[in-house]
Every structure is written in C-alpha cells, then in structure tokens.
C-alpha cells in the first residue's frame, strides 16, 4: 500500500517535535477529519534554519509532514513557499490516491507557518498574497 520511502518516514520521522520561540507556526486540518499538522519554523536571514512538526493522523500524514520538513530545511523562504504537494508526493515515491490530501495538508501547513512568520514580522512573502489560513478550515474532510 505504501512505498518504502513513506514507510521509512513514518517509522523514523525527521524533525519531529515542538519548538520553543518559533518564528512561524502553522496548524492545519482538524480532529474531525482525522488529521492535524502543526509546523514550527526557525528563520534567520530569510533562510529556514530549522523546522519541526507535530502531526495527528494516519501513516501517510506523518510521512508527508516528515518529508515536507526535509524538503524545506535550509531553504530560503521563497523556495519554501514554492513547495507543492506534488513535490512531496514525488519525494515519497507516490501516495495512494485516497491519501493525496495528506500531502496537500503538508503544503498548507508550511504555507500557514510562513504566513504566521510574515504576519509577526510585518513582511509580505511573494506567493502568499492570496493565502488565507482560515480557508483550510472551510475545506471539510477530503
């Protein structure tokens, strides 16, 4: 059902945990639908120095969070904003169709954390002009 890479990231998730004094925090999803992702960012000089995640959800939700954090760690904000759910799926070697929403959540969680950072620092991030973290709430379960 899951690729080796998905299972690896599920079994040994990278960057798990809480972060004190994060520069940006984003949380998406809800308990009703069965998955919640929370992303913490440490940003220095427009570079994502560190990233942590906490996820409630199925195996592919945990694996998608783990992979997404790996893909943005050490990258610039501009690069992180560009991260798409497709890139997460590709890096995982594929996800079953019913689990694609996990990768969407991962993308949204990162955007949401970057949005929070932009709000706190009064910056505008290119690519987030139309992002509204509230939208995610409206989605309903996938």
């Amino acid at each position: 059902m899951y690729t080796e890479t998905v299972m690896d990231h599920f079994r040994n998730p990278r960057n798990v945990g809480h972060m004190e004094n994060a520069d940006g925090v984003g949380q998406v999803g809800n308990v009703k639908c069965g998955d919640i992702m929370k992303i913490y960012l440490k940003i220095n000089d427009e570079i994502i120095e560190d990233v942590k995640f906490e996820t409630f959800g199925c195996g592919s939700a945990i694996a998608s969070s783990s992979m997404a954090t790996e893909l943005i760690k050490g990258k610039s904000i501009d690069e992180a904003v560009e991260l798409s759910n497709k890139a997460v799926i590709e890096a995982l070697g594929g996800l079953p169709p019913v689990k694609v929403h996990c990768s969407v959540l991962a993308e949204q969680a990162i955007k949401s954390a970057l949005y929070d950072y932009a709000q706190k620092t009064n910056k505008t991030i290119k690519g987030l002009e139309n992002f509204n973290p509230e939208d995610e709430e409206e989605f309903g379960c996938h």
């Binding site: 599920f10 079994r11 069965g34 998955d35 409630f56 195996g59 939700a61």
Partner: peptide, 23 residues
C-alpha cells in the same frame, strides 16, 4: 492518536488488528 498509524506499527511487530478510523 489515529488508528491507521497504530495498525502500521502493530504490523511491524507482527500483530494484526483493525481500526474504526476513517483512514
């Protein structure tokens, strides 16, 4: 915690069970 994640970890220990999770 969510049931599917539990089942996957149980399977790694050789235990087969089931869950009422949507996943």
């Amino acid at each position: 915690v969510e049931g599917e994640a539990i089942l996957l970890l149980l399977d790694m220990e050789g235990i087969a069970a089931s869950s009422g999770s949507a996943c």
